[in-house]
Nucleic acid binder design. Sequence first.
RNA 1: GCUCCCUUCGUCUAGAGGCCUAGGACACGGCCCUCUCAAGGCUGUAACACGGGUUCGAAUCCCGUAGGGAGCGCCA
Length: 463
Amino acid sequence: MSSINESPVITRFAPSPTGSLHLGNARTALFSHLWARKSGGKFILRIEDTDLTRSQDRFRDELISDMLWLGLEWDEGPDVGGPAGPYCQAQRGEFYRSLYQQLSARDLAYPCFCTAEQLELSRKLQRMAGKPPRYAGTCRGLTAAQRAEREARGLKPTLRFAVPGDQMIEFTDAVHGLQQFASNDIGDFIIRREDGTPAFFFCNAVDDSAMGVTQVLRGDDHLTNTPRQIMLLQALGMPIPAYGHVGLLTGEDGAPLSKRHGSTSVQEFRERGFLSIAVLNQLFRLGHAGDVDGWLAAAEMPRHFRPQHLGRAPARFEVSQLMHWQKVSLERLSQEDFRAWLAADDSPEFIDLVRHNVVLPEDAAAWRAVVQGELAPLGAEERRLIDAAGAGFFADATLAYEQSKGDLKVLTQFLKERTGRKGPDLFMPLRVALTGLAHGPELAQLLRLMPPETARRRLKIHA
RNA sequence: GCUCCCUUCGUCUAGAGGCCUAGGACACGGCCCUCUCAAGGCUGUAACACGGGUUCGAAUCCCGUAGGGAGCGCCA
C-alpha cells in the first residue's frame, strides 16, 4: 500500500486529558493516523497528563472512546502497551529524572529560584521597554554556594534549560518548508516545574524522540516552539523527528477552534447523531486535499491521503459541509444499520419511507410524531396553503377521506371531482393538513401509516 | 513590542511560469423530473488581498503594504 519511495512513518497523537477532544485535535490525530497507515508505519497514542491539577481520568477515558469511535486505532498506547512505554507521562518520571541529571551535570540546565511574581514583573518591565518578554537569566550564573544557600532557605527551584547563544536552528517543516530561528531570540525555558513535574517543551520533545516518532504533526501554534525542542534534543544527543505544522482549524466565526466554541467537541457531534464516517470525511478535507473529490470509506482514506497537500492557511469548519457528508454517509447505510443508527423501534415501512428525509435522529423523531403523535404548529407557508384552500375544501376532504378508507388515490380522485382542483392545488393543502409541513416523504404512505382517527381529525379541524 | 506563520469563489480546496476565458466540492439560484421535500440530470452566480518589480509571459518567483493568526507562560 505504501508508495515506492516512502519509508514507514511513525506518528503519534499526544493529547492532554484536560478537556474534551475537539475537532481540531481530532483532525491532527486523523492526519497522523492516515500518514502512518499510508506508509505502513505506526501510530502511537501518548497521554500528556503532567498537569496534575487539570488532568482527569474521565477526560482520558472520553478521549480514548472518541478516538475509537472515529476508528483511529493506535499500535502503541496506554492500554495496549508497546516497546517504548509507559505511554502516560505521569508514569515516566524516572526517565525524565535521568535526563534532568544528565543536563544538570553538564551545566546545560540549572535551577532557577525566581518566583512567579518576580518573573511576571520582569516580563512586564521588558514589555514596557519594548523588548520581548524573555527570561532574564537571573539564576543562570548562580554559584554552587548560592544555590545551596537558597535551598537551605527552603526555596524550591524550577529547572531551566540553558539555551546556547548565537546559534541558528534550522529545520524543514513538512508543511511550511525550511524554517530558521536564532537561538538568541529564545530565553532559557523551564523544563521541570517547582513541584518536580516535567514541563511540556521537555517531556513532549523527549518522548517523541524516545518513542521513535519520525514525524510529528501538530497545529501551527507550535511552529515557533519547535526550535526549543530541537535544541533540547540536540543537547541530549537524541534523534530529532521531522516536524510538520498544519494550519489551525477555526470555527464559523473565523477564530481558532477552542473549548470556548462549545459545540465542536467530537463528543457533541457523536451525541447529536452524526456518523463517525461523516465527521471523518469532513475532517479529511479541512486543511488537506486528497486525490479524490467524493465520499471515502474509512479504509480508503490512507490511500488517498496526501501529506504534501497539508494546508498552511487556517481552515474554517462549517456545519453545512458536515451535513453534506452526513447525508452521503447515511445513504450508504443498509436498512439494518440505518435502523441501528436511529436506535428506535421503527417499522421497516416507516424507515424506508422516511430515510431520505432524515439527516439526524431528531428528524426521524419529527416524522414519527407526524405519523403517530401531535403536529407542530404551522409555519407561515403552511398557514398560507391552508388558508388558500379554504374551509370548504377541507369539508370535502373530510368526506373524501371517509370514502377512501385511507387510500390517497381514491381520496384525491373523489376530491378532484368534487372540487375541480388538481395538481399542487389539490395535494398541497392535504399534505399540510395531514403532516403539518409543506414537504416530506410520500404522502400516500404517510397516510397509510397514520391511525384513521388522526387523519380524520387533522382534516376536520380546518373545515 | 519582538520573532514567526498565513492570504485563490460565502466555505473547503486544485493550481508548483505558458495546459487558467482560474478547475472541482459544499452552500445558493434556475431548469428538467415530480402531488411536496429529498435524490438524480442539466445549468447559473461567485475568487487569485493590494501595490510594485523580474519575465516574451505570473495565481504561481522577488520586494513592499494591508489584514488575519501564533509564539515569547511553573498551559499543552
